[in-house]
Design a protein around this nucleic acid. Structure first.
Lengths: 346, 346
DNA sequence: CTGAAAGCGCTAACAC
DNA sequence: GTGTTAGCGCTTTCAG
């Protein structure tokens, strides 16, 4: 009777199973737990015979090391955190994928934290990752720095990706946004544009500032005066871009080129242009930024600035890995080159 | 001298800081560690006075619970795993985002594992997540089931999302793929198509099978004979779809409608149609699936079947959360409705 | 209401 | 080469 009841209980609720412990396999092999630990971690000395014996038992009993216990002891969790504004943005997703793959091959797992550009969430995620003892942090910086960054950096190795927190001492990997903005604008100018709109994020992070400065300098180089009317700030959704461009048209502001700081923005702009039957690239030329699929598979396909997502991710991952494994931390600012991808809008 | 050297060492390498421990705040407050633990977890009895005292010290000294130690004791890690084929696919990313947000509010973190549809990787990730003691698992099932699924399910609560592993006993949340395939095809038929191509994934998971069956049944309903020539299998990249459609055109196979099992595939098909100057929707009509941005911001914008990403994620998260917190596990198959989003390609 | 003490599962000195 | 032992930092009986 009693047995039946307890069985029922068991089956109605998942229980952490009684996993096999290091102690048990030690008993089976007639050695100490220390020895077992040594062969499992291939750390220290042991005879070939014991190695075989232990490994066999591990296999046979299906032993799996309890990483939580191990972490408590070693102070390493074999996991890293990624703090990112928007995981559904293909640009971020691609970088995360590369980082994930890299660390997977090294035996690490990845905690992904989406901030949605919300400083409050960002800070909470940071705290949480710290409490969870991640070994390192990939940080798509977003909020204003009020000192929390240093607080984290002192405890955990961190690599900033994409966005530069503009601190003297930090390891950062970013695209050459300035050059990107410059060549995007230059492409428009060379294609004949003179009145060039720039569509940019209201949030002024380092990437936007870089692209904007490139735009300004390219105008200057070709002796084109900057018109503040043509600098449009918005949240980076295609719809926002569509509205902004529609507005401009309605107001009768003339323009013959658009530099969108994001491919999504470019796609939105295209929609507005189409709505007003403005021919692209004949009447208005357009260049985006990022080179994500929306620019490639659109119609017309959108000329854009390629960011090397793989490279960004790979470098950041390698850097963080090295830091985790004791390579001395020193300020570093890796700039990854960008390139123009010419398509049908210029 | 010695001091200077040791200082140098410290600064050149990040060290896990001596965080403040429960023991220290116990000493400061003149109570035992047990009591501190009780007030921190608001668990058990303690006087109002001690509560204030402890909380104040926690705040002042900046105490943070060491989750690793806590996990070892409680056997809960407050983290869940997500196993997913491709994080850069907007459809998956949106679902993950919702799940992440949900669990964030509950104090959980999320381990994201990308399998790239590779069964080997998938299995390794599964093992890793088990070793890391995740409290639960969201599983976009991909590999062939050879029994590993049950192995995991016995140890960890798991919710299957999007793809149905077709097991009797499982908790799964999926879109109504059959109806989606049906209404997509019906939309094409009602718009005048008779020779309807279907573009689908070579991998025959439950979502593809459902959509395909819907397609077949819609044809049947309207008395249209199925032509195997028009059923095209491929990997789900836009380029593959472009090639497949181009091929069909080159071979002179006639068709006047395309049901693409994915918006990405639809975008690729559009490219091929454009290349051969085939007018959409006049000569060929097109319907996609998923309703991700590539269909919305394309030109022409693509008619598609909306999958309710938010709902899928929300239901899955809630279900898993309930399971983690002891609600009895019982087979369940939640079908989330889909709907037609009519745009410019039909 | 509070304290003492055991112990989660593992690793790493330190002995031998 | 191997065993003994002392924790990692926390929660949770069990006493009082």
């Amino acid at each position: 009777m009693t047995k039946a009841i307890s069985e029922k209980k068991e089956s109605s609720k998942i229980k952490r199973p009684n996993r096999v412990l290091i102690k048990e396999i030690a008993e089976v092999c007639g050695v100490s737990t220390a020895t077992v630990s040594r062969v499992i971690n291939n750390n220290g000395r042991f005879s070939d015979e014991t190695r075989k014996k232990v490994l066999e038992a591990v296999e046979r009993l299906g032993y799996k090391t309890n990483i939580v216990a191990k972490s408590l002891r070693t102070k390493k969790t074999k996991s890293i955190g990624i703090v990112v504004p928007d995981i559904t943005n293909e640009f971020f997703a691609k970088i995360i994928l590369t980082i994930q793959d890299f660390f997977f091959t090294k035996g690490y797992s990845v905690l992904v934290c989406n901030t949605n550009e919300d400083p409050g969430k960002e800070e909470l995620h940071l705290k949480d990752l710290e409490a969870k003892w991640v070994d390192g942090l990939i940080y798509f910086f977003c909020m204003e720095d009020k000192g929390q960054i240093d607080a984290v950096r002192k405890k955990i190795p961190v690599v900033f990706v994409d966005r530069n927190p503009n601190r003297k001492v930090a390891v950062v990997v970013e695209s050459d946004n300035y050059t990107g903005g410059f060549i995007a604008t230059e492409e428009l100018i060379k294609a004949g544009s003179r009145r060039i709109v720039i569509l940019k994020h209201v949030l002024t992070n380092s990437t936007i500032v870089g692209r904007y400065n490139g735009y300004r300098d390219a105008l200057k180089k070709y002796g084109i005066e900057f018109d503040p009317q043509l600098a449009l700030d918005m949240y980076i959704t295609p719809d926002a871009a569509k509205n902004a461009i529609s507005n401009l048209i309605e107001k009768g502001v003339s323009f013959d080129g658009i530099f969108a700081c994001t491919d999504g923005l470019a796609a939105g702009a295209l929609l507005a242009l189409k709505k007003y039957n403005i021919k692209v690239p004949e009447e208005v030329k357009l260049v985006g930024f990022d080179n994500v699929s929306i620019s490639e598979y659109n119609s017309p396909s959108i000329t854009t600035i390629n960011q090397d997502k793989k490279q960004l991710g790979k470098i950041a991952a390698q850097l963080l890995f090295d830091m985790i494994n004791g390579s001395p931390i020193q300020e570093k600012d890796i700039i990854v080159p960008v390139e123009l991808v010419r398509r049908e809008t210029t």
